[in-house]
Design a protein around this nucleic acid. Structure first.
Length: 111
DNA sequence: CTCATGACTAGCT
DNA sequence: TAGCTAGCCATGA
């Protein structure tokens, strides 16, 4: 049986995002062994209550925040990302170069 | 059981 | 580049 629940694998993948980098919902899901479950990742985040979870590093596939611009959540997310050195364009989009490249190694540490 | 909703995505126009 | 659509799937009414 699975040593870790799907939810726990997803949370682990989110926690593994390095400071200053970001990852899309779909990427997190895939890394958790749940390809195509981006919405599950979103749902977990919406219900998560762990203040240690770097939820602000999780973005949509286009590099934008999942929250509508102008909302408190959106502002908070952008604020945290900037504080970590993440660069955004005028439209609040994270530069592609800063998006996650090898979360797999971050999570499962290669071998 | 069906229907609506949502911190999503990929593809098409 | 922006907007729309269909597909996705766990939850709750």
């Amino acid at each position: 049986m699975d040593p870790l629940s799907a939810a726990e694998r997803i949370l682990a993948a989110i926690r593994a995002i390095p400071r200053g980098e970001t990852a899309a919902y779909g990427v997190i899901a895939q890394r958790a062994g749940l390809p195509g479950r981006a919405r599950l990742v979103a749902r977990l985040l919406s219900q998560n209550d762990d203040p240690k979870l770097p939820w602000h590093r999780v973005l949509r596939s286009d590099g934008r925040s999942a929250f509508p611009p102008g909302t408190p959540h959106h502002e908070e997310q952008i604020k945290r990302l900037r504080r970590e050195g993440v660069k955004l364009d005028d439209r609040g989009r994270v530069l592609a170069a800063k998006r996650t490249k090898s979360i797999d190694e971050e999570v499962w540490g290669g071998p």
